[in-house]
């Protein structure tokens, strides 16, 4: 075959690559994260959509103004969506824009003094939102319009007191209370445990909260795909989970006067930013350590700090983001320690 007419070309080894690319990976992560976000938009309405869109548009503008040499706009869009998902639905426009721009400038190393090796850009953006603009944030949480309050008049008289208490709790909806009662009477009472009010609302997503964090159920569903596809390191998620649940289960009951081993772990897992933080923030592959030992140290440290903040009632809205930021400051040390262990295995 003549050299000039051959349709075959020379390629350097290796000849075959894994069937996915970085672009696919972040596209898929974006798609998965967008599911709880879309749910948040549905239950909170137009203001939530405006928050998300403004974060995404600012990311797009940054990508156009400051493109990378080897482009990966999908990651910037993922960062923007995650920041938007972590914000309350009714924040002023400048907050998602400012936080997204800051996170992306750090991520692109435009702000030279803040190296993403030491700082998780998304956690930084979220922390800025909740600390720098705290007065705006408190006013920005909405009750989902699907949250139907409990109708105390139509209830039977024997439950009247309980229902009245429930109706005064803004975190308990009609459907949440129904589901809680059904599960308690049919299953959990038999097992000798009791689901507290508000837990099912948090699980389904009928409670106040940030746009993407509301439905624990949806986050758990998308996390299955996240883990099956191996997009983000499962070891970080697992060690984060254990790093939180073990100390919180042991000591969580002390603050309520219930003693050791009575911490109400489920309430903390299903409410707030615990799950979103675990699957999308802490485990973001770009900011996690390289190998398994590092994943375990990194994840469990974040989980432990989140437990510590919850037990001491500090950083109420941004416990996960602050924990990620704090652990990330030690990320290069965790990295070099885990790699030194690997180096010792060399022949």
């Amino acid at each position: 075959m003549n050299k000039s007419t051959s349709p075959l070309q020379l390629y350097e080894a290796p000849q075959v690559f894994v069937p996915y690319t970085t672009v696919d990976l972040y596209r898929y992560a974006f798609l998965l994260l967008s599911m709880p976000v879309v749910f948040g938009i549905i239950i909170f309405g137009v203001s939530a959509m405006i928050t998300i869109v403004s974060a995404l548009v600012s990311a797009l503008v940054i990508e156009i103004v400051l493109p990378r040499k080897k482009k990966l706009p999908e990651h910037s869009m993922f960062i923007a969506l995650l920041i938007g998902a972590s914000l309350p639905p009714q924040v002023p426009l400048f907050i998602p824009v400012t936080c997204t721009v800051l996170a992306l400038l750090v991520d692109k190393k435009v702000i030279k003094k803040i190296d993403p090796a030491y700082v998780h850009p998304v956690a930084l953006g979220i922390t800025l939102a909740y600390t720098g603009f705290s007065s705006f944030m408190k006013k920005s949480f909405l009750t989902p319009f699907m949250h139907v309050p409990i109708d105390t008049v139509s209830q039977a008289s024997t439950f009247a007191r309980l229902q009245l208490e429930r109706s005064q709790n803004p975190d308990v909806s009609f459907w949440g209370a129904k589901l809680t009662d059904a599960l308690n009477t049919s299953l959990f009472d038999v097992l000798g445990v009791h689901i507290p009010d508000g837990l099912m609302d948090a699980f389904i997503g009928l409670t106040r909260g940030s746009i993407g964090e509301t439905s624990a159920f949806l986050i758990l569903v998308v996390s299955i795909f996240l883990i099956i596809r191996g997009l983000f390191p499962a070891w970080v998620m697992m060690s984060y989970f254990l790093g939180f649940t073990i100390p919180y289960y042991i000591f969580g009951g002390l603050t309520e006067g219930w003693g050791f081993f009575h911490g109400n772990v489920l309430v903390h897992i299903f409410s707030g930013s615990f799950l979103l933080g675990m699957f999308f923030l802490a485990a973001d592959i770009m900011y996690s350590p390289l190998i398994r030992v590092g994943h375990i140290i990194y994840g469990s440290s974040i989980g432990f700090l989140v437990a510590l903040f919850s037990l001491s009632h500090v950083f109420s809205w941004l416990g996960v983001a602050v924990a990620v930021l704090m652990v990330h400051f030690f990320a290069p040390s965790i990295e070099s320690f885990s790699l030194s262990l690997r180096r010792k295995r060399r022949k």
Partner: peptide
């Protein structure tokens, strides 16, 4: 073959994990 254009390293650690000589 899985050929695609080169993009930014995302520090996924796959290369480090898979290396048979550590």
């Amino acid at each position: 073959t899985g050929h695609a254009r080169e993009s930014t390293c995302i520090r996924c650690g796959s290369c480090t994990t898979v290396c048979p000589v550590n």
